[in-house]
Design a protein around this nucleic acid. Structure first.
Lengths: 118, 118
DNA sequence: TGGTCCCCTTACGAAAAGGTAAGTACCGCA
DNA sequence: TGCGGTACTTACCTTTTCGTAAGGGGACCA
């Protein structure tokens, strides 16, 4: 169920970076957490249209293991879990900014469908 | 055999950008073409340790369709095909540079295995 | 004559990723 | 009493991705 461990060495930095952001919702999770600072599970779910609970937990666990996301559990009833970016997560998001700008420009030029291009 | 068309709109620019670079070797192909300018099929194959011919052609065709790579066929015998980056491919590579630096730094700090971190 | 190089293409199958649906345990609210 | 909210977990299935192996067709080299 957990992500199978990477086999073989990284070829270059892009290789290593794509290894932690590839995943259907990881870019969006980074974006949401960076925009809001701290988010609870249900808030993230509402912010990612179409994500299933399984994928959301799975991605969050992998990102926690990769040191991008901090997970804080409050032992209350009902349970409360807060997610936020680590320092690594924030710098990754900054490194992703030019890529996001490139994608936004591409979507604009090519006239692709998009729901909300920030 | 071709890449199934994207279903649904893009959520943000990162989403759109990751859509064209996700693929086991695409980051490396971009890197190789940017470093050398023009490369032939067999040169690329030798530059990507472990890639199969099928994956290489498949990725190159998708990147051509996405407007990142230019494919020039010389009707000779034996055949000669030269690949190079389009303007879009070059700007994408520039947008990937910060991400590559982040990955390189991460590999260095975490002590991951790597073969050649440029 | 056989071998190698070039740039693929096709067929088959395994592995990984992702989707759907249900269940869990407890609480507040009506 | 039943419903909704909280944050998951588990089982099962489909889709997508990747790898392996083989072939092709002409030309050059020994």
């Amino acid at each position: 169920m957990a992500k199978p461990p990477r086999t073989g060495p990284y070829i270059c930095g892009i290789d290593a970076a794509l290894d932690v952001v590839s995943g259907k919702w990881k870019g969006l999770i980074l974006w949401e957490l960076d925009a809001h600072g701290v988010r609870r599970f249900a808030q993230l779910r509402r912010g990612l249209p179409g994500v299933s609970e399984k994928m959301l937990t799975q991605h969050l666990r992998e990102m926690e293991e990769d040191g991008l996301v901090h997970r804080e559990v409050y032992p209350e009833v009902p349970p409360r879990v807060e997610y936020s970016l680590t320092e690594d997560g924030r710098t990754l998001n900054q490194a992703l900014a030019p890529l996001g700008a490139w994608g936004t420009e591409r979507v604009r030029r090519e006239g692709f469908e998009s729901v909300d291009v920030p």
